Simulated scan of single mutants.
Amino acid sequence: MEIIELDPADGDLVSGAFDVMRATHAADHPESPAPHRAAFIKGLSYPPPDEDEAHFVAVEDGQVLAQLGIGMPNRANLHFAWAWINVHPDHRRKGIGTALLDHFIAHAREHGRTEITLDTHMTWEDGIERSKAGQLFLEKHGFKLALTVINRRCAVDALGTDTEQALLEKAQAAAGDEYEIISWVGRTPAELVETMARIDSTILAEVPLGDLDLEPETIDVELRNAKADRTEAMGIVPIHTVARYRLSGEVVANTAVFVHDDGEFPDAYQGITIVDKNHRGHRLGLLLKIVNLRLLRENFPHVRAIWTDNADVNAPMIDINVTLGYEIVDAGGEFLRKLEA
């Protein structure tokens, strides 16, 4: 078996890597959104501007048996790296996963990283029962659970029309006239990019991170536009709704949902919803998510469900999601290992 760095121009290996992703999804968590082929392939050619990515495949006799992806921040949190490992179900328990983990550790050390993470699906409450194989594998190799997120799914029509309208009106009343609600599909309007960059810069300071030692990263206009370029290149369409505080003209709350631009993929992904700490208590989070949900239904009628995850301790956002009809599917465990000097 060889571990080969994946060249985006090598169509056979790229197809093999995607086939492994599809097989592991079908075996391990088929209820989750399926891997999207076009987004995966395009993502290889358009890496994130704020991360250094590396992709590898384990190959034997010309066949891809497993896939390793590595991400490393390149602007802040330079001590950190994460990875994802997929081993085809037909080739497990042969040491391939361990070989790829060793490759990840060596790569991280080579680039000066001292903390690394991998994640795995886990059972949560009355959700779908997941295998413990991933968790046991990580614990065997010195990883400890650092953050638990709960994965939830919501039908786009989970709420009845009257219930949704009543929630919207209550949220509008709580918000009052101090905020202008603005929505759009696709790229952020040029006049909002700077204020959106400011609120994006607060995300890591506001979301629960468990035992992960991560500092907020300053998002500037250039970086935000570069991220938008990549999103567009991958065929992913953002749907945004924000609240702009009329007195300052600044965006103080934001939510976004992301869809694949193929007209058939039935799932959408809820991104971060964030409200400036000085503007909480006005039901802005609930207001924006309902407005954005309606925008999603209007523009993408083929989408049937929205997926989200929240840290298990993020009670305010979990309460909003439960109100909107999100139901538990499973959990994701992010496991941390600190590398020896």
Rank of each mutant, 00 (worst) to 15 (best):
H240E: 08
A108E: 09
V185T: 15
R22D: 07
L209W: 05
D267Q: 02
E169G: 05
L287N: 01
V251I: 14
F18G: 09
N292F: 01
R22N: 09
S32N: 10
A106F: 02
N74L: 05
E194S: 14
K132N: 10
T202P: 02
E191H: 06
E298F: 02
A305I: 01
R337T: 06
H302R: 15
H88W: 05
Q165R: 14
L339Y: 03
V193F: 02
A17L: 04
N86I: 08
A243L: 00
E129G: 04
G249E: 07
L223K: 02
P216W: 04
D102V: 11
P49K: 12
G210F: 03
T308M: 04
G249I: 12
L68H: 05
A83E: 03
M1K: 00
H36Y: 05
A38T: 14
F335N: 12
A205I: 04
I290Q: 00
D229H: 07
L247N: 10
R109C: 03
M234L: 12
Q63T: 15
G127I: 08
Y269A: 12
V156N: 04
N74D: 07
T120C: 08
G186V: 00
T120N: 08
E110S: 11
E298P: 06
V185Q: 12
L339T: 11
T120W: 01
I105T: 12
H260V: 09
P266N: 13
G249D: 09
A106Y: 02
T241D: 08
A171W: 00
V329P: 01
Q135M: 11
R246C: 05
I272V: 15
G69H: 09
V149K: 14
L167V: 07
H103Y: 03
P33V: 03
L44F: 04
V149S: 09
I219Y: 03
I128E: 09
T308Q: 06
A76P: 02
I70R: 00
D10W: 02
P216G: 01
L65M: 14
E194W: 01
Y269K: 10
A81G: 04
H55G: 06
H260E: 13
P266I: 08
P30T: 07
R198S: 08
V57D: 02
N299T: 13
G71C: 01
D213K: 13
A243F: 00
I41G: 02
E232A: 11
V156D: 01
H29K: 10
L212R: 09
L168G: 03
T202E: 13
K227E: 12
V275I: 14
R153Q: 13
E139M: 10
L138K: 13
P301T: 02
E51L: 11
A268T: 00
I318Q: 10
